[in-house]
Design a protein around this nucleic acid. Structure first.
Length: 591
RNA sequence: GGACGCGUAGCUCAAUUGGCAGAGCAUUCGACUCUUAAUCGACAGGUUGCAGGUUCGAUUCCUGCCGCGUCCA
C-alpha cells in the first residue's frame, strides 16, 4: 500500500503537480473559503438561487469518500469536522486534471475551484473547474462506515481518531425496525429482569445524544474559555506558578520526581499549585486563578490520568460558604456557555447542573445508607472510634478470623460472594473496622476522622449523581483547612460531586502559621508511619503565612472531569487528547 | 496491585467437540457523466499479539509474557 501510493505520488508529479506544495493559492476571482463557512452561508440556498448566482469558490480539504462514475465522479471533502461534496467531470476539468482525480486516494488533501450547485438529490456540491493536489495519505484510512472502533488505537493514533470523528457512545445495533424498538418499552412484570435491563439500556441510549470525538475537544476549549470569562469578569487575575517544585505540596498524593542538572537538585512535578497561589494572596493578589496541569504518580482509571488539568482559584475575604455559592454559579455559567443548557446526560442519567443539594458529610452517610444492609448510623455513632466500631459490628459482624499481618486485606476481601447483595459494602466496613482495631497500622489522633471520611467514600460517593456539595470535613484529612470555631475536629471544607465522583475541593484557608506548622508536623508523623501521601513540611509557606494571609477561600476544580460531565464522555481518556499509554513498538509503516 | 474480559487481513468483524482462516470496506485491475455506506465484475491481501505446552492436527485447550478495556484496591 505504502509503496503503491508513493508510486502514485510520482505519477501525480508527472502530471505537473507538486508532491508537497507549500500552499494553496486559488485565483482572486475564486475566494478561498472554509467548508464550515460555505455550509453556513449556502446550506439554506436553493438550487435555483445557486444557479442564478453561480457562486465561484475555492476550497481545500481531506478526501473522505470517492465515488467514481466513469468519466465523472464525486468526492467528499472534510475540513474542520464538516464535509462538502465535489463533482468532477472530465469535460469540465480537462484530461490532465481528471487523470489527477483518478490518482487520488482516501485521505489525500486537495484544493479545488469551481462553483456551487445542487445535485439531483439536492446536495450542496462544488462543480469543480480546477483541481490542485496538496498532500498524500500514504497510509490507508480506517473503514469508512465503522471508523476507528478499537479503543487502544483511538488513543494511540488520536490524529486518525480525530479526522474519522467517530462516536464515543455507539448505540447497540437494533434487531427490529427503529420504531419497533422505541415502542418496545412497555414494562411487562412477567419479563425476566435481564430483558428489562436490556430494554432500559436501549431507552437510555436513545435519549443520550451521540458524542463525537472532535466535539468533545471543541467543548473542552469552550469550558476553558468560559471559566476565564467567568473569573476575569469578577476581577480575578490569571497567574502561572511553578510546575517544578522543590517540595510537592498542596495535596495528598505521590509526586513524580525529576532532576535539575545545573543546580544538581531533585525537583517534583507539582501535585497542586495551592501553596504558591496562597503565597500570591499574601503578596496582595486578592483574587487569583490558575488553569494548568497537575501530575500525580498514581494509578490510571476512567477518572484518573497521571497528568490532568486543574483550575484553582483563591479569593481573599471569602470563606467556604461564599465559595459554595460561587461554585454553583460557575458550573451553571460554564454549562450554559458550552452547551446552552444546564441539562446534561452522563452514564445513562440526566443531570441538571442548575439544581444543587448541600449536605454535611455526617448527613450524607446516613442519607445514602441502604437500609437493606443494616441499621443506618446515627450522629452519636460518629462521636468516637469506639462508637463507630460498635455500629460497624452491629451492621457487619465479623464472621471470619482477621489477622493484621500483610496479606490480611486480600484474605478479608476475598470472602466468596454469597446471597448477600451487600457483600462489598460489608467487606469494606469490616476492612475499615480492622484498620480501627489496629491503630498502629494507621495512627492515633486522626483515626476517627479518617474513618468517617472512608465511610463517606464507601457509602455515599458513588450515589452523588446530581450536583451535590458535601461540606464539613474531618480535620485529620484536611491539613490546609481552617477549623470550625464550634467543632475543632472539623474544618470549613467542602467537595462537590457530580455523576458519582468528585469534581472540586474547597475550603476556608488555614492562615494561622503556628497551627499550620503543627498540621505539617502531624503530617510528617503520618509520613513516618509509612503514608507516602502525607503532606510534606513547607517552611517557606509557613513563613509566608507569618506575614499574614487574609481570611481566604480557595478551591480546585478538575477540568477533565467537568468536561466529562458536560460532554457525557465516560472515561477521562476521552477528554484528554493524548492520554498516557504504555509505549508500543511499531513498524516502519511499510508493508 | 487483584479479578474478569478482549487481541484474527490496513479497518470493522466471522470461523461448529480441536479438523483446509472467511466476509464487508479499503487497496489493485475492468465497466459506468447526478453518486453519496454508489453499483457491477475480477484479482490480491494472514507467522490468528508474543513464547512455550498438550495433540496426528490448535484461532479454538493449558501455562507464561505483552498490550488494551471494565470493575475492585
Amino acid at each position: 500500500m505504502y509503496a503503491l501510493r508513493q508510486e502514485k505520488l510520482k505519477q501525480i508529479e508527472a502530471l505537473g503537480q507538486s508532491a508537497y506544495p507549500n500552499t494553496f493559492t486559488p485565483p482572486e476571482d475564486h475566494p478561498l473559503r472554509t467548508i464550515p463557512e460555505i455550509r453556513a452561508e449556502y446550506d439554506a440556498k436553493t438550487g435555483e438561487e445557486l444557479e442564478a448566482a453561480r457562486v465561484p469558490v475555492a476550497v481545500a480539504g481531506r478526501i473522505m469518500a470517492i465515488r467514481q462514475q466513469g468519466k465523472a465522479g464525486f468526492a467528499t471533502l472534510q475540513q474542520e469536522g464538516q464535509r462538502l461534496q465535489i463533482y468532477v467531470r472530465k469535460d469540465a476539468v480537462g484530461d490532465a486534471a481528471f487523470e489527477l482525480y483518478r490518482l487520488l486516494d482516501l485521505g489525500d488533501h486537495i484544493g479545488v475551484t469551481g462553483y456551487l450547485f445542487r445535485t439531483r438529490t439536492n446536495e450542496l456540491t462544488i462543480h469543480v473547474e480546477t483541481l490542485t493536489f496538496l498532500a498524500k495519505a500514504l497510509l490507508a484510512l480506517p473503514e469508512k462506515y465503522h471508523g476507528l472502533a478499537d479503543v487502544e488505537l483511538r488513543y494511540r493514533q488520536r490524529y486518525v481518531d480525530l479526522f474519522m470523528n467517530g462516536v464515543l457512545n455507539p448505540s447497540e445495533p437494533e434487531s427490529g425496525s427503529p420504531e419497533g424498538a422505541v415502542l418496545n418499552e412497555s414494562p411487562d412484570p412477567g419479563v425476566e429482569s435481564k430483558e428489562l435491563e436490556a430494554g432500559s439500556r436501549k431507552l437510555e441510549a436513545g435519549n443520550a445524544p451521540e458524542i463525537h470525538v472532535r466535539d468533545v475537544f471543541v467543548k473542552r476549549a469552550a469550558v476553558l474559555r468560559a471559566m476565564r470569562k467567568f473569573f476575569d469578569a469578577r476581577g480575578y487575575i490569571e497567574v502561572e506558578t511553578p510546575m517544578m517544585q522543590p517540595i510537592a505540596g498542596g495535596a495528598m498524593a505521590r509526586p513524580f520526581t525529576t532532576h535539575h542538572n545545573a543546580l544538581d537538585i531533585d525537583l517534583f512535578l507539582r501535585i497542586a499549585p495551592e501553596l504558591y497561589l496562597k503565597r500570591l494572596v499574601v503578596g496582595g493578589f486578592d483574587r487569583v486563578y490558575e488553569i494548568n496541569r497537575n501530575f500525580r504518580n498514581e494509578g490510571i482509571s476512567t477518572q484518573h490520568n497521571p497528568e490532568f488539568t486543574m483550575l484553582e482559584f483563591y479569593q481573599a475575604y471569602a470563606n467556604y460558604h461564599d465559595l459554595m455559592n460561587l461554585t454553583e454559579e460557575l458550573i451553571q455559567f460554564v454549562a450554559m456557555e458550552v452547551n446552552g443548557t444546564t441539562i446534561t446526560h452522563f452514564n445513562g442519567t440526566e443531570i441538571d447542573l442548575g439544581q444543587w443539594e448541600r449536605l454535611t458529610m455526617r448527613e450524607a452517610i446516613p442519607r445514602f445508607w441502604d437500609d437493606r444492609a443494616g441499621p443506618k448510623p446515627s450522629p452519636a455513632d460518629f462521636s468516637s472510634v469506639a462508637a463507630l466500631r460498635a455500629w460497624i459490628s452491629r451492621v457487619a459482624p465479623e464472621n471470619r478470623k482477621t489477622d493484621p499481618r500483610p496479606g490480611f486485606v486480600s484474605e478479608l476481601l476475598g470472602v466468596p460472594e454469597g446471597e448477600n447483595p451487600h457483600h462489598d459494602l460489608h467487606a469494606s466496613l469490616r476492612f475499615l473496622d480492622l484498620q480501627l482495631s489496629h491503630p498502629e497500622l494507621s495512627s492515633g489522633d486522626g483515626t476517627l476522622g479518617r474513618a468517617i471520611y472512608s465511610l463517606f467514600e464507601i457509602v455515599a460517593e458513588k450515589n452523588l449523581i446530581q450536583p451535590t456539595i458535601i461540606y464539613e470535613f474531618p480535620l485529620a484529612v484536611s491539613p490546609l483547612s481552617k477549623q470550625k470555631p464550634d467543632e475543632p475536629d472539623w474544618v470549613e471544607r467542602f467537595e462537590f460531586y457530580i455523576g458519582g465522583f468528585e469534581l472540586g475541593n474547597a475550603f476556608s484557608e488555614l492562615n494561622d502559621p503556628e497551627e499550620q506548622r503543627r498540621r505539617f508536623e502531624a503530617q510528617l508523623a503520618e509520613r513516618e508511619r509509612g503514608d507516602e501521601e502525607a503532606h510534606q513540611m513547607d517552611s517557606d509557606y509557613v513563613r509566608a503565612l507569618g506575614y499574614g494571609l487574609p481570611p481566604t477561600g480557595g478551591e480546585g476544580i478538575g477540568i477533565d472531569r467537568l468536561t466529562m460531565i458536560l460532554t457525557g464522555a465516560r472515561s477521562i481518556r476521552d477528554v484528554i487528547l493524548f492520554p498516557l499509554l504504555k509505549p508500543q513498538m511499531i513498524g516502519d509503516g511499510n508493508q
